[in-house]
Design a protein around this nucleic acid. Structure first.
Length: 217
DNA sequence: GACCAGGCACATC
DNA sequence: GATGTGCATGGT
């Protein structure tokens, strides 16, 4: 079966099993960007409680984060782990928005996605996954987000090799799907939800894999 | 108590 | 360029 077809079947199977994701959880594009940084190697529950603290302190705002003492910012986001590093990362994001977007992240929507991606990647603390999450989920650009789950599931389906890079994995999707921001959004969300529900690191198979294997045969 | 969670930067070889 | 390590909390 062609790769395009296998990806389509996988998408349909996950959507059928789980329903629409309505991602990313977050009320505003800036909140989404903050969540993208806070969730680095961290359980989403912990991120939620950190974001709640920011909201209560009226700190979910680039200017507020820019002006806040690092220690205080760290205390607010403590539940999300790595809080000293992440406080710095949020500061760096706010500096970037001040310099590039007049403090309003939505102002970045006019930019060329790949050019903007390269620029966002210069922010210390923002790597490929975080950058792509901001581009797709906060700015609604046709950029596919790759994470550990994506690699794990695609490997199990034999769609890519075990040692493939972030870029190769990303190309698997962008080479085979229409560059539709909403489709990229939902596909990645379904992958994460599938992995969370059924596809733990230690188990060789998951329910959605069985579903998809059936579809392939 | 070990293991895991929607990574990333930096040092070292 | 590959490989190793620090960063840190909270749930299972």
């Amino acid at each position: 079966m062609k790769t395009v077809t296998r990806l389509q079947r996988l998408y349909e199977a996950m959507l059928e099993a789980l329903g629409p994701s309505h991602w990313w959880p977050g009320d505003t594009p800036f909140e989404i960007a903050v969540g993208a940084i806070l969730t680095q190697n961290t359980n989403w529950k912990n991120v939620e409680s950190a974001i709640q603290n920011l909201k209560q302190d009226n700190a979910l705002d680039p200017a507020a984060i820019l002006d806040m003492p690092p220690d205080h910012l760290g205390e607010l986001i403590r539940p999300s782990g790595y809080f000293r590093m992440k406080a710095n990362k949020l500061k760096n994001l706010a500096i970037f928005l001040r310099d590039e977007a007049d403090m309003v992240i939505e102002n970045l929507r006019d930019r060329d996605p790949q050019e903007l991606r390269a620029k966002i990647l210069t922010i210390n603390g923002v790597g490929p996954e975080t950058a792509d999450s901001i581009l797709n989920y906060a700015l609604e650009m046709p950029v596919f987000v790759v994470d550990t789950y994506t690699g794990r599931i695609m490997q199990r389906h034999g769609l890519i090799s075990e040692d493939c890079s972030y870029h190769e994995l990303q190309n698997l999707f962008t080479d085979n799907l229409e560059p539709d921001p909403a489709l990229f959004n939902e596909f990645h969300a379904l992958i994460v939800r599938t992995a969370k529900d059924w596809c733990k690191k230690t188990s060789p198979r998951c329910e959605s894999c069985h579903l998809a294997y059936d579809l392939e045969n």
